[in-house]
Computed example of a mutant assay.
Amino acid sequence: MARRSAVGHGRGTAVVDDESAPGMRAFDPSADPWRASETGRGRGRGGPRPGRWGGSGGRWWIWVGRAVLWALIVVILVNGIRAPFERFTESGGTQAPTGPSQARGTGFPTSAAGAFALQFANVYLNYDQQNAAAREAQLRTFIPDSADGQFGWNGLGELRVQSVHVAGVDARDANNGVVTVLARTQDRWLRLAVPVYAKDGALVIKARPALLPPPAKATLPQSGLQERDTALEGELAPVLGTFFKAYASSDQATLARFAERGAIAGLGDSVTFVQVREVNAPRGDAGERTVTATVAWQVPGNAGGAELEQTYELDMVKKGTAWYVRDIRGTTEPGAS
Rank of each mutant, 00 (worst) to 15 (best):
R289L: 13
L69W: 05
G149E: 13
A263G: 04
W189P: 01
R66A: 15
L203N: 05
V164A: 11
D17Y: 10
R35K: 14
R283S: 10
G168W: 02
R35V: 13
A246H: 01
N280I: 04
R140P: 03
R3P: 00
W63G: 09
V299C: 09
R41Q: 15
T321I: 08
G23L: 06
A6G: 10
R87P: 00
P29R: 09
D269R: 14
I205P: 00
V291K: 01
T290M: 07
K318C: 02
E260Q: 13
Q226F: 14
R160I: 12
P84T: 06
P97W: 09
Y324H: 08
D28G: 05
L232Y: 05
F243L: 02
G44A: 10
G305R: 05
V169K: 00
R43G: 15
A265H: 10
V325W: 04
T98Y: 14
G23E: 02
V78P: 06
P33Q: 11
W63D: 14
L314Y: 01
V295T: 04
Q252Y: 03
E158G: 15
G320I: 06
H9S: 13
A265F: 06
T141I: 02
P214T: 03
N302V: 15
G47S: 11
D170T: 06
G241C: 05
P209C: 04
Y312S: 03
V291Q: 01
Q102S: 06
A202G: 05
D285Q: 11
R188E: 13
G305T: 07
V291D: 00
R289P: 07
A303C: 07
Y197M: 09
L159E: 14
G54W: 04
T39H: 11
P109R: 03
F273H: 04
G23P: 05
G114K: 02
A231S: 15
V7R: 12
L308V: 14
T110R: 05
A133E: 10
N79V: 15
G54S: 15
W61C: 10
A113E: 00
S5G: 08
T331R: 03
T219S: 10
M316I: 06
S20M: 14
S30P: 01
F27A: 15
A117M: 03
L139C: 05
A113L: 01
S111W: 08
A26D: 09
M1Y: 03
R277W: 08
G177W: 00
G57W: 03
R3E: 13
P33T: 13
A293G: 04
W34N: 15
A36H: 11
A14F: 03
A167S: 11
P29Y: 06
V7I: 14
D170C: 02
R257E: 12
A103C: 12
W53A: 14
E278I: 05
W70D: 06
A71I: 06
G287T: 12
V274L: 02
V7S: 09
A296Q: 11
A303Q: 13
G287S: 13
E233W: 07
R208I: 04
N79C: 13
R104S: 11
T94C: 07
W153P: 00
Y197V: 08
